[in-house]
Every structure is written in C-alpha cells, then in structure tokens.
Design a protein around this nucleic acid. Structure first.
Length: 716
DNA sequence: GTTAGGG
DNA sequence: CCCTAAC
C-alpha cells in the first residue's frame, strides 16, 4: 500500500517569537544566574556581564569582561555572537550560537546589568535538552514587578489532559532574574561533559528544583503530580528502547520527581538515520522510518513576586519559598528551550534561510527591561520598533499609575508539536514547505489561547480582568497563558487535501499531519502510546469557546472584553503570536491548510483532455462531473488550472517541461482542442448562435487527425 | 456555485 | 494550488 517510505518527523514545538527579528539576533546565556538568583547581583550586573562577555569575545572589552570564564568566552567568540546594543541603553541582548556541541547547548539571552561581576561564572547550563520536553511555552511579563519569579513545572511525557495545552511562562517584573541554582555548576564540572553527563547534571539540578519548587502547574489541576515529572525513571543511560515513546511515556510520573529531557536526548542518541535527532524519537513503525517526538512536555511558568509568593494555585504543594534559584533555573531552561527548538528545526529539516518565519521563531528572550524604568525604551529599541514593544513598555511604566490597565508581556509562545510524514524521496525543499505549512496551519487556526490564573483555567471569557482578579497586582504572578489546540479548527486542518489518515500512497508529496486531534493523532501517527496531550483534548475545549477564533483573536477577545480597555495584553499577545507566521497568517486569518500538491497523472491528463475535447473549455464543472466525478480531490478549478498548465506545457519546449512527462500526443491534443475552443469562443462572441454541428464535426474530425488545420478547415 | 485569470 | 473578481 505504501509506495514510498515516509519519514515522520515530530516537532515538539516551535516557539513563536514574541518579537520579530530583533529577537532572533541576540541571545546569550546568562552567566550570573546563580548570583542573580541569590540576589547577589543586580540586573545591571547581569547586563554588564553579558555585555562584557560579548565584548571580550569580540576582542576588546575594556570594562566589562572579566566575568566569564575563559571557556565560555571562547565559546562565545566562536559562536557568532550577536549583540544588539541600543544606543544608550544598558540593556543588551545577546545571542550566541554555539556551533560546537550546538545540540546540547544554547544560550539564553537576557538583559544584563552593567556592573561587572568577577565572581560570576558564565557557565551555561548543561542541559538544554530539557527544553525539548517543553511542548510549548510562552512567556508573559508583567511590568510592575521588580523582581521576577519564575516557576515552571516541567512535565515530561505527561499524558494528562493538559498535555495538549501550551504552557506559557509568565514573568512579572521588568527583569528576569533567572538564575539557576544547581544547574549552573562550576565550569570545571560542566566542561567536557558528555551528553550523558550533561543530562545527568541537568537532571540533578532539575530534580532539586522540582523538589524545592513545587510550582503550580496547570497539569496539577488535572490531579497530576505536582512534582516535576520525568518519564525517564531509568535516568541517564538511555537506550534506544527508551526512545520508544510508548514505553517511556505514560508511565511513572508519580515515581519520578525529576524532570528530565533525557527522553529526547537519548532519542537522539538512538541510531536513527534521520537527520532529525533530538526532537524526535524513533518510533517503531511498519517499515516506515519514523522519527517522532512524542514527549510533549509542557511547563508552566509563574512569576510571582518574591515577597508574597503565594501560589494560590490549585496545587497545594506550592511552596512560597521556592522562588529562589530553582525557579530561576526553571525559567532559564524554559528559555533555552527556544534555541533548542530552533536547532532542532534547523538540523532536522535544514530549514534555514528560506524558512520564512519558522527559523525566526526565537525566544523573545532578552527583552527584559532594565529595572529602572527606561525599560520601555530599551524594549522598543531592542525590538526594532515593533509596535507592540513601545506601547508595552509604556504600559508597563504606567502600570502603577493606571490601575485600570493590566500590562502583560508575553515573551513567546510555543507552537504545539508537529508530526510530519514525508516520503523519503521528497526533497528538502518539500520538507521545508511541509514544515512551514504545518506550522502555519497550526498557528493559523489550530491554537487558541487559554488563560490561567493561579493555575486555574479561566473559562469565562466574559469576565473582566478585574472580576477575574487578573488586574490585581498580586494576581499577576499567577497569571499564565497557554496555547491550546483549537478543536474546532484543528480538525479540518488536519486533513489537507484528503485524509491524512489514509496516508494516500499515491501522493508523492509530503503530507503534513497535525495531531491535534486525539483520534487523528492516534491513527495517523500510529502512536503506540497515547500521546500525552492527545487524549486530553477534550479538556481544552472550553465550554464557552467560540467557533474558531484564531489565537490572536482569542487574546484580543479576552483582553478587550473588558470595558476597561486592557491595552497591553491584547497588543502583546497578538504580536507575539503573529510574529512568525505573520506574513502568511495575516493574509488568511483562518489559515486553512494548503492542500497537498497532487500532480496529475498521465491518465488524469488523458481524461481531462478527452473531456475538454468533448465539452470544451469553460465548462469546467461539467468536465469535472464527466471525467473526475470520482476524484474528490480534483475540483473543477483544479481541472481548469491543469488545463491552463497543459496548454502552457504544450507550448514550451520539452526541455523546459518539468514533472512527469506528458505524452506529446496528449499535448498535441491539448493544443488542438484549446485552439478549437478558443476559436469557438471567439466566434460565439461574434455570433451568439453557434451551429451545433461544428462541435460534432470537430469531435469527429479531431479523432483522426490532431492537426489544427483539419479543425480549421472543418470549422471554416 | 462557476468561471476566468492572476499569483 | 490559491485567491478573487465577476457573473
């Protein structure tokens, strides 16, 4: 049945940058995390440090550079470091792409204070991998908090109802104080770590985090274990067997208190032919090479203020005190998540330059503002004038003064994971397109925004923020947004041009599948194990949901419903979501998946030609009914278009033709028929009355000779 | 809903 | 194939 082998790619998620290009440029890991977390250093210190590192890497950095260890610096240097410096601003956004070991590392960009801190070590967190588990994340920042607390839970391999949702990180306060406690170990430790080692360290740190910081996770609502969950009980040494989503997934959440990305990591370790490594786990499938990433982990970040960090979240486990470094660590990890994804994408699909938008996804990372209030300026500058930035900043500034306005900043959203199946024979270009389409489709209509307040979903869209309590400052910390599958839209989108479920063998072209629907996902994807989020889709369907609001619409809707004009939220969230797919998405807000391309076979061409010869051009509906009535995927528009291309093809030299060659005989007939019917059309315009005989004559004549002359003579 | 034509 | 104007 399957003519071609197909490669299935799973994408855990793409992160949609909250900010456009500006974002992608600068990214760097934050050295000071630990200290920062401990409140030993200020935001400015961090900024300065980062700046220093950059400069150092570049070559000369007089003032602020001694902060990072040589190794890091070198790494920084090696990896094209981008930095964005906005005039006069202290904020610095840096992005580095670590080429070596890229897979494992990435840097989180953040704003760094200007002060240098020698003590600070710029170790990067070893475990990037964890990010892979985050299905989706978005970050929201509220303006008024000077301190930010990030709490996120990592759900690894969660199968809960919430899986489908995209957690987002909410940050309060202008500055991200993300620091990692244990994760950032002394360089010596981190250096030279193997993947496994890295994973290990990561785990450890994570585990600690988990223990200490039971933050509310949306998942918890579902009655899931509050603690960080790792599907990987076995831990480090993972073998390919673990890669099997089925085995690793569902199980032991309870037992596991450590969140680990190992699954993904290890999966990469699994020998798989596919270029796509980490993100996907090889799934045993009938003869198909499937790489999938099944773990759809999600994490949720909450950024309560340090002081009154009362997570009123449904999760009882929440410890007020957890804010410390652990939280910071979490946050960092989450941010790192982005780069990871990006890498994944790049590596796997090798989508790069042309990947409109996708590669753009970036963490909106460092957009954090400096503590002092000029943040707004910085922000706007950094983001290259993204409209939202300035307004946002302003809003943030005025946060205190204007009680009626709630200001939020969503740093980024993640797109839910994608599953893609594509023939081995497909070109890279087609893969790129497929991925793009998948992403576009998801962004376009497959998602909607959910609002979480203290871990609870706010389902009543009609409530005002004030009523809900979102407007209250202290509530900000517990405010979260999530991207969730939008059932109403996803379903239709899932089957581009046909039913993916059937996996049309005849289609040489890539199919993109978006397992947003439980049933579909299971069937199409062939999950041995239930997709974590799949089963739970039902949960995402919020009672009051309207037909099919786009994500942006949703956010707008939510925020605007309030008469009080909640300015910031809408703008921000919209922007964030729109960033990547903007060009496409904007055009058609509904974002309907483009139908898969299905080249006409010679037989189809034959049928088409014959029908047109008989019926003539201009009666495409009849042609459809006559010759393609059974081909549901061929619309009369398709036939018309095909005829158009056939005519064109017939007129060009054979060398210029592409695709499956059409027999010259058919092309001749195309030209003949086209000429004839064109003439008929012209005549008709002249004389409305056209002898029926002509048609008959034509038809009888054409059979024998395909020369236009005959037709002409006959007609004449 | 169909056509026709540009993209 | 998509999108749309025009019918």
């Amino acid at each position: 049945m399957v003519l071609q082998k197909r490669l299935d790619y799973g994408f855990n998620g793409y992160q949609v940058p909250a900010t456009p290009r500006a974002t992608r440029s600068a990214r760097k890991r934050v050295p000071f995390r630990k200290r920062f977390e401990d409140n030993q250093i200020s935001a400015f210190d961090l900024l300065a440090t980062v700046a220093g590192n950059l400069l150092l890497g570049k070559e000369s950095t007089p003032t602020s550079s001694n902060t990072s260890s040589g190794e890091d610096q070198s790494a920084v240097v090696k990896n094209a470091v981008k930095e964005e410096r906005r005039d006069g601003d202290q904020s610095l956004k840096v992005e580095t792409c670590n080429q070596d070991r890229t897979d494992r590392k990435f840097f989180v960009s953040e704003l760094v204070p200007q002060t240098n801190d020698p003590n600070y070590s710029s170790k990067e967190s070893p475990s990037l991998l964890n990010d892979a588990h985050f299905g989706f994340a978005s970050v929201i920042t509220t303006s008024d908090c000077s301190e930010r607390y990030d709490a996120q839970k990592l759900m690894n391999g969660k199968t809960e109802s919430e899986m489908g949702s995209l957690p987002c990180k909410v940050e309060t306060g202008p500055f991200v104080c993300g620091t990692t406690g244990d994760c950032f170990k002394p360089e010596s430790q981190n250096k030279g770590l193997t993947y496994e080692e890295l994973d290990r360290t990561d785990k450890i740190s994570i585990g600690e985090v988990a223990d200490t910081c039971p933050l509310e996770d949306p998942v918890l609502l579902d009655g899931k274990p509050p603690a960080l969950v790792s599907s990987d009980s076995s831990g480090k040494a993972r073998s390919c067997r673990d890669c099997n989503p089925c085995s690793s997934f569902p199980a032991k959440q309870d037992d596991v208190n450590v969140v680990s990305r190992d699954d993904d990591e290890n999966s990469s370790g699994c020998t798989h032919p596919s270029p796509i490594k980490k993100p996907f786990r090889p799934t045993p499938r009938i003869g198909d090479r499937r790489i999938r990433k099944i773990l759809a982990s999600k994490y949720w970040k909450v950024a309560p203020r340090l002081k009154d960090v009362t997570f009123s979240n449904s999760d009882e486990n929440v410890k007020p005190a957890c804010c410390g470094r652990n939280s910071a660590y979490k946050r960092i990890r989450s941010e790192r998540n982005y780069p990871f994804k990006k890498r994944k994408f790049l590596h796997c699909s090798s989508v790069s330059s042309s990947d409109g938008g996708i590669s753009n996804e970036g963490i909106s990372d460092s957009s954090e503002k400096s503590i002092n209030g000029n943040a707004s300026g910085v922000y706007s500058k950094m983001h290259g004038g993204a409209g939202e930035s300035s307004s946002l900043a302003d809003q943030r500034k005025s946060f205190h003064s204007m009680d009626s306005h709630v200001k939020l900043r969503i740093k980024s959203f993640r797109v839910p994971e994608l599953f893609i199946e594509i023939p081995e024979s497909a070109t890279v270009g087609s893969l790129k397109r497929t991925v793009m389409e998948a992403v576009t489709a998801i962004l376009g209509g497959g998602l909607r925004v959910g609002v979480l307040l203290q871990g609870k979903k706010v389902r009543d869209d009609n409530k005002t923020l004030l009523q809900t309590g979102i407007s209250r400052d202290n509530q900000m910390d517990a405010l979260g947004f999530s991207l969730e599958p939008n059932p109403s839209q996803t379903s239709p989108l899932l089957c581009p041009g046909g039913s993916p479920l059937t996996l049309p063998c005849d289609s040489p072209l890539p199919l993109a599948r978006y397992p947003t629907t439980p049933g579909l996902a299971n069937q199409v994807v062939c999950d041995p194990s239930p997709e974590p989020h799949m089963p739970n889709l039902g949960n995402f369907v919020e009672s009051d949901h309207d037909s099919a609001p786009s994500p942006t619409d949703m956010s707008l809707e939510k925020s605007t419903t309030d008469s009080k004009a909640l300015v910031a939220v809408p703008a921000i969230s919209v922007e964030a979501l729109a960033v990547v797919p903007a060009h496409r998405k904007s055009k058609r807000s509904e974002v309907v998946q483009r139908r898969i391309r299905r080249p006409f076979s010679v037989a189809e061409v034959e049928a088409l030609v014959q029908a047109v010869e008989k019926l003539g051009t201009g009666r495409w509906r009849d042609v459809k009914l006559r010759a393609f009535d059974n081909a549901k995927h061929r619309t009369y528009v398709d036939l018309k278009d095909k005829w158009k291309t056939l005519v064109h093809t017939a007129r060009i030299s054979p060398q210029q033709r592409r695709g499956e060659p059409v027999p010259q005989e058919l092309l001749d007939r195309v030209l003949t028929a086209h000429a004839y019917w064109s003439q008929q059309q012209a005549k008709q315009q002249l004389k409305p009355q056209q002898p029926e005989t002509c048609l008959l004559l034509y038809n009888s004549t054409m059979r024998g000779s395909s020369t236009c002359d005959v037709v002409e003579k006959t007609l004449g």
